[in-house]
């Protein structure tokens, strides 16, 4: 390039906006960056590898006998519950890492490039689906090792896994929003846990709701996590797709529709 001269502004083709195709392309490039980063620092996958193994073992043997009589009968109940809880908890990391990433100088460059504003965010979130996939595969594998034989068949299990990954990706937009508006990574972690802990435990993920007080039962029924857990149970245990499946997808869509735009707006304002 040392011999070339630089084109004057009026000779350039300048565009006022990035179109949809470019936005997708930019986001995929950013996702590629996210994957490279994961490849460079594989230790950040510790949580998604260990958590499914430890939690599945722990909860199954602690609650199994008390809730379902024995471990074998509890597996079809707990594995979908643990799956949803683990994968969604993993999505908090997305927000935390986004905060850490945004504090680095490289985000200045992304902002100064003529790319879609959503790309750095969407890319980071997209790359993290690899984390959800690892957690999903490991949880089901643990279940299988412990004796779970899903009656829905492999196909239904795959669909259930995809459903959880899609929903977690949608939910990660909430944590991405916290990530963008918070000052520090640890505060993102704090707020997110505060939101997520009651949501996952006040659901039907670990125990049937029937034994809970009336008020709690009402909350458990409207809790979107319960719908997702039920959808996964129906798929793995009988291979059926019911109303809960639809509700979960609608919920995911609504979350993305609300949080993606406000997150991008907050991201641009913080600039």
């Amino acid at each position: 390039m040392s011999s070339t001269t630089i084109k004057a502004p009026h000779e350039r083709k300048l565009r006022r906006k990035t179109n949809f195709r470019e936005s997708v392309k930019n986001s995929l490039t950013m996702a590629y960056r996210g994957l490279l980063k994961i490849k460079r620092t594989p230790e950040q996958l510790f949580d998604v590898t260990l958590q499914p193994i430890i939690f599945t073992l722990m909860f199954t043997y602690i609650f199994g006998g008390a809730i379902s009589g024995n471990v074998q009968n509890y597996l079809p109940v707990i594995i979908p519950g643990i799956l949803v809880q683990t994968v969604i908890t993993t999505s908090i990391v997305t927000g935390v890492q986004l905060r850490e990433d945004m504090d680095k100088g490289v985000f200045d460059r992304f902002k100064s490039l003529p790319i879609a504003r959503i790309a750095p965010l969407a890319g980071a979130l997209l790359a993290d689906t690899i984390r959800y996939t690892i957690a999903t595969v490991l949880t089901f594998s643990m279940g299988y090792v412990m004796g779970l034989r899903p009656e829905g068949g492999l196909g239904a299990v795959v669909v259930a896994g995809l459903l959880v990954i899609v929903c977690s990706w949608a939910i990660s937009w909430i944590f991405a929003f916290f990530g963008v508006i918070s000052r520090t990574a640890s505060s993102v972690q704090g707020i997110s846990m505060l939101v997520l802990f009651p949501l996952t435990f006040l659901s039907n993920a670990f125990v049937p709701a029937e034994t809970m007080p009336k008020l709690l039962q009402w909350f458990v029924k409207i809790n979107p996590i319960s719908h997702l857990v039920t959808a996964v149970r129906e798929l793995t245990n009988s291979g059926t797709v019911g109303w809960d499946f639809t509700i979960s997808l609608i919920g995911a869509t609504v979350i993305v529709a609300i949080f993606a735009p406000i997150t991008v707006r907050a991201y641009m304002r913080r600039a």
């Binding site: 502004p9 350039r12 300048l14 565009r15 960056r33 490279l36 980063k37 460079r40 620092t41 680095k104 100088g105 490289v106 985000f107 200045d108 460059r109 100064s112 003529p114």
Partner: peptide, 16 residues
């Protein structure tokens, strides 16, 4: 599309 920015703190990706 008309500018390049080089910041006071290197705006490149450390881990790559």
């Amino acid at each position: 599309q008309l500018i390049g920015v080089t910041g006071q703190y290197a705006s490149v990706d450390e881990s790559l």
